[in-house]
Design a protein around this nucleic acid. Structure first.
Lengths: 237, 237
DNA sequence: ACAACTTCTCTACGATGTAGACTTTACACG
DNA sequence: CGTGTAAAGTCTACATCGTAGAGAAGTTGT
């Protein structure tokens, strides 16, 4: 009988065709989205594609490179218009785009945030650097000096990544259970040591990430915009 | 003979005495600091302590719990004064403290940033939640409503974590090689696609993290302080 | 049809986390 | 001082992981 030959179309892409980098990476992404980072093992991914695990090494040197590929794939979902004349609006737009992207692929966020720490800037996957280049372009066209553009980028992206991490931390599996679970968790905290936190349980429970992001970005952007008008701010260069 | 009994004081703490949680955790931290996260395996840590790896399970349920313990240990190095009447100064102080801490333990930062993503807020190690509680206290005492304090905390910590990630990404092993390596890396980028980034190589090379952090925090704090004076800002509650 | 590829598969090895049984140590109490 | 109990430490064993290396199968150009 041979009960497990060609088990199923799996992703629906093309079950038993020739493999390709995109195919491998998107299967990897699907797996991570569905079952988390730990589920992405060479063997498991091979099985998911109906292929021998060893074959994957044609498309990614090692597991680490595979992970890089996945984050690159996700970042490519981001669309930036570096020619938008309204740079603030564009930055706001990107911020919400990236936020949605993170919510769509929460399990990939650790990769996005962590992998660059072990790879010098110049050696990262190009797809990973494209947003940086495009935002620099946006800012320079808006009138910032290149050096200031870099500073603005850092402040902006810094806050953005920070917000995303914050928001993902406060999300719990099922939004319906959210309040219950949260309270459950908080209940464990000693009342003596964590009075403020415990009192905030209801506020913690309904978190409007988009609004929060908006407010932070607004504060930051209006602060950063001041650099454009008053060039006496020290750039320390 | 018996050439490898009591091999060395290892950390200098107490070579072959009874083990303790602190001992285990600080050995783990030392190992991570010295050789990175991947070097922290049960076997290796056991060997570092001159003990059987299995013994470690008395002090940490699994490897994940061990990692949690390490990040808790690191976060405990942070000192916060929740009674400081000048909340802005205190937040600035904390920011620089945390930054220095991250630079001191760069290999731990991925943990700090990543582990909370897989643990609901209420179930985290208490040491991890203490900064949150203390900053809330600081802000509430400064006159923010509890809900607003939470929002301010999020914006502040979001930016702070983002900055730290940014800064660590741009650091390369040896600061002397920094420029060379950076150029080397950047040189690889196609000039067509990354003109701005390539042109910024020299600026990237000398990065004053403390100054950059300061500027961002200043912008954010002055924006956030506005909430205190004009309570008409929508809190959406 | 044959040769030169590329792609895929198999087998095998060392390392890892950890379960479960066993042995040693430390200490309270008669 | 001897002894029993619980804690701390150790040993062995297993499933699973990443991946090296040899070979089989499939594809393509002539």
């Amino acid at each position: 009988m041979s009960p497990e030959e060609k088990p199923a179309p799996v992703t629906g892409a093309g079950r038993k065709k020739r493999l390709s980098r995109e195919l491998v990476l998107s299967a990897a992404l699907a797996l991570v989205d569905a079952e988390g980072l730990d589920a992405l093992t060479m063997r498991r991914l091979g099985q998911e594609l109906g292929r021998d695990p060893m074959g994957l090494y044609r498309y990614a040197e090692n597991r680490a490179a595979l992970l890089d590929g996945v984050s690159e794939l996700v970042l490519n979902e981001l669309s930036i218009f570096p020619d938008d004349p309204d740079w603030q609006a564009q930055l706001r737009h990107i911020a919400h785009d990236l936020r949605r992207l993170a919510l769509r692929h929460p399990n990939v966020v650790p990769l996005l945030v962590t992998r660059p720490l072990s790879t010098p800037l110049g050696l990262r996957p190009l797809g990973t650097l494209r947003p940086l280049e495009q935002i620099l372009s946006l800012l320079i066209d808006a009138g910032f000096t290149p050096a200031d553009a870099l500073h603005v980028y850092r402040a902006y992206y810094g806050y953005l990544y920070g917000h995303i991490l914050n928001e993902l931390q406060e999300i719990i599996a099922d939004p319906d259970e959210n309040e219950a679970l949260l309270r459950l968790g908080l209940h464990r905290l000693p009342a003596k040591d964590f009075p403020r936190l415990r009192a905030l349980a209801p506020v913690l429970a309904d978190y409007d990430g988009a609004a929060e992001l908006d407010q932070g970005i607004n504060i930051l952007l209006s602060g950063l915009a001041a650099r454009l008008s008053s060039p006496d701010a020290q750039t320390s260069d």
